[in-house]
């Protein structure tokens, strides 16, 4: 095999800087080789004999050792004072955040003619906790919309939903390998949410749309509109399209 002056790995003759060692080898090439496999880079026939390459590798190794020291120091420090620093930052950030809350729309409580409301964030928190009472389930997005709506729509801050029954749109994850089939999980979540709506809030929830997202799909959680998960709906007084294998128990009407 023919030895090129640039070493055994042909490639771009020089790095972004066009910088070559006195022996002709591109510095960036040498570094790339070292990054891929430090031992192999040092064992190359050319590098073993070339003082320039050896010196360049030694310098790189020195820097690398320092980087490791710094990482070790940082790991050590973050276990102690770093956390105290971070707590201070967290406290100051949250002080500001709490003056800039986004409570969402006001959602009706009670009878249509009543003038009682709850902000969406507070109700959503209740529903997420209720959903997470189902073993293995974790809740993400939770929106509350008028019963007739099937998707979220923009509402101005401080807006009030129309009086009347509402629909809950809830995204949850269930770990893979859960013993219960997905429709059963969705059904259990729906019942918990319905119970919480009636028992903890006094909200007239007529439909709970549960979207079960695979943990594996979570990377794409940003847009939950078209997940492979199951969406189904239980709506008394309507004929919701839902899979035949789902045994959904429609929520009872809130009677107060």
């Amino acid at each position: 095999m023919e030895m090129s002056p640039y070493g055994p790995r042909p490639g771009p003759p020089a790095g972004p800087e066009g910088e070559a060692l006195p022996c002709g080898r591109a510095l960036e090439d040498l570094w790339d080789a070292w990054e891929s496999d430090p031992a192999a880079a040092a064992a190359e026939p050319h590098a073993r004999q070339c003082p320039h390459c050896a010196a360049a590798l030694a310098d790189l190794r020195t820097l690398d050792d320092l980087v490791r020291d710094e990482l070790a120091r940082a790991a050590h420090a973050s276990a102690r004072e770093g956390d105290a620093l971070a707590s201070g930052v967290t406290a100051r950030v949250m002080d500001i955040v709490r003056t800039e809350l986004r409570p969402g729309a006001a959602v009706p409580l009670g009878e249509p003619e009543e003038d009682a409301w709850i902000v969406e964030t507070a109700a959503a928190r209740t529903f997420r906790s209720a959903a997470e009472a189902v073993p293995g389930v974790r809740a993400g997005s939770c929106r509350i919309v008028p019963l007739g709506d099937t998707q979220r729509r923009f509402r101005f801050p401080g807006a009030r939903l129309p009086r009347g029954p509402v629909r809950v749109l809830l995204d949850v994850t269930a770990p893979p390998g859960l013993e219960r089939p997905v429709p059963e999980v969705a059904d259990a979540v729906r019942q918990r949410v319905t119970t919480a709506a009636r028992g903890e809030l006094g909200m007239d929830v007529h439909a709970v749309d549960v979207t079960v997202v695979d943990l594996a799909d979570l990377a794409d959680l940003g847009d939950l509109g078209d997940t492979s998960g199951l969406t189904d709906t239980a709506s008394p007084g309507r004929s919701p399209a839902r899979p035949a294998d789902v045994v959904g128990q429609p929520p009872e009407d809130s009677d107060d």
């Binding site: 009670g110 003038d115 009682a116 902000v119 507070a122």
Partner: peptide
Amino acid sequence: TRAARTAVERAVAERLPDASVSVTVTVTA
């Protein structure tokens, strides 16, 4: 919210017996 409404209505009625009272209650947290 219902209990608070009743309490507020009563408090207003004690001071302004002839006034009609309406109350909007919003749970914020």
